[in-house]
Design a protein around this nucleic acid. Sequence first.
DNA 1: CAGGGGGCTAAGG
DNA 2: GCCTTAGCCCCCT
Length: 97
Amino acid sequence: MNTSAASNKDVILQQVAAVPAGQISSYGAIAKAAGLPGYARYVGHVLKSLPKDTRLPWHRILNAQKKISFPPASLAFKEQKRRLEEEGLTILNDKVV
DNA sequence: CAGGGGGCTAAGG
DNA sequence: GCCTTAGCCCCCT
């Protein structure tokens, strides 16, 4: 798929961007798919570092419990929830189904 | 080099 | 449902 010149961060972002609309994934799954098993936290750290105008579907990335790991008072929480709903998903008590 | 923390995960109490 | 323990890893002091 592409050369090995990609850094861990790039690979992760690539996997995140590879997630189809209406489909969700977990940090561990992304890390694993990126060939970095155990980098779950690193994935979160990277996504969190993304710019507000990022085009990466970071909102499709949830934790292993399929729940939004943000506090309900966080803007990211509402934003992610809203985007997921826009993609046809449903959120029940911070949980994505 | 040591210490603390983080959109994590799984198992236990 | 919540918190703790333990594991994995990276980044900043």
